[in-house]
């Protein structure tokens, strides 16, 4: 007989693990409400909401936030197109070097960001491309593509190939088949992949450091703020926003890809 109840030791260990992961996050949140703005003093001498108003009125925060949202959006769109095409090619056709291509697509996410960053910077320099909004987007697209690819390739593998043949058999050409059969079947995977890609891009620091010009994305702005202490809790307010903005898509992606094991073409 196996007991399904966890032992007390296991419960404590799990609790400790969760606390280790999430207590620092809680601290960040609490400091967003502190009345003291020079050093992070514990416990906070008082609580206030004024930092939200201060943050609201800071144009540099808005600039950084807007840049981050734009970069993340465009990188995600690029990743959706390229990642889906790549996944379709790898899972739908057989060609020489298919496994190698598959590995090469995934590699950027395994590489340390600093390597990706340096190599992109070197490449942009060589090609005489000035650092701009678009160089940041390109840098982010490298790892966003991987996330979309991974989600799409898994769904493609679960989608039976005979669905496409059935659609063609019933009179649909390639475009109609894509619109009426393939897209509905991979839509949730793409949405999940896109949300993860957006979240990854939104809080990326390392690659951005190497590929940005004068622009500051939100995470870069936060890094700068910590070095020059001035209205410190503003950073915490922004951090809270970042956590929420990235956490919601990840939660969404989790719910979208969960429980989809019986998707597509499990005919029998």
């Amino acid at each position: 007989m196996r007991s399904d109840r966890a032992s007390v030791g296991l419960k404590i260990a799990a609790g400790a693990g969760l606390a280790f992961l999430h207590l620092p996050l809680l601290l960040i949140f609490i400091y967003a409400f502190t009345t003291e703005d020079k050093s992070y003093q514990w416990p906070p001498p008082g609580l206030t909401l004024k930092w939200f108003a201060v943050t609201w009125d800071r144009p540099d925060v808005w600039q950084a936030l807007s840049l981050s949202v734009r970069v993340a959006s465009i990188s995600t769109v690029i990743a959706l197109v390229l990642g889906t095409l790549c996944a379709a090619a790898v899972s739908r056709t057989k060609f020489f070097g298919r496994e190698a291509v598959s590995l090469l697509v995934i590699l950027p996410i395994a590489l340390p960001g600093i390597v990706t960053g340096i190599s992109l910077r070197a490449a942009f320099n060589l090609a005489d491309i000035p650092f701009s909004f678009w160089t940041i987007v390109l840098g982010h697209a490298t790892f966003c593509v991987v996330v979309v690819y991974n989600n799409a390739v898994a769904r493609f593998r679960r989608t039976s190939g005979s669905l496409i043949e059935a659609s063609m058999d019933l009179g649909a050409d390639s475009f109609q088949t894509f619109r009426h059969v393939i897209l509905p079947n991979i839509a949730t995977a793409l949405l999940a992949g896109g949300m993860l890609a957006f979240a990854l891009s939104f809080d990326e620091v390392i690659v951005t450091t190497f590929t940005a010009g004068q622009q500051q994305t939100l995470p870069i702005w936060m890094l700068e703020e910590l070095v020059r202490p001035r209205q410190r809790p503003v950073t915490n307010v922004v951090a809270m926003v970042v956590v929420l903005v990235t956490f919601l898509p990840i939660l969404g992606a989790y719910y979208l890809t969960r429980g989809t094991d019986t998707v597509a073409g499990q005919g029998k």
């Binding site: 043949e165 059935a166 050409d173």
Partner: peptide, 17 residues
């Protein structure tokens, strides 16, 4: 296939899920 006046009943049925 989509311009042929034939239709197929597939072995795994291939119904659109």
């Amino acid at each position: 296939p989509y311009r042929r006046q034939v239709n197929t009943v597939f072995q795994d049925y291939a119904l659109f899920p």
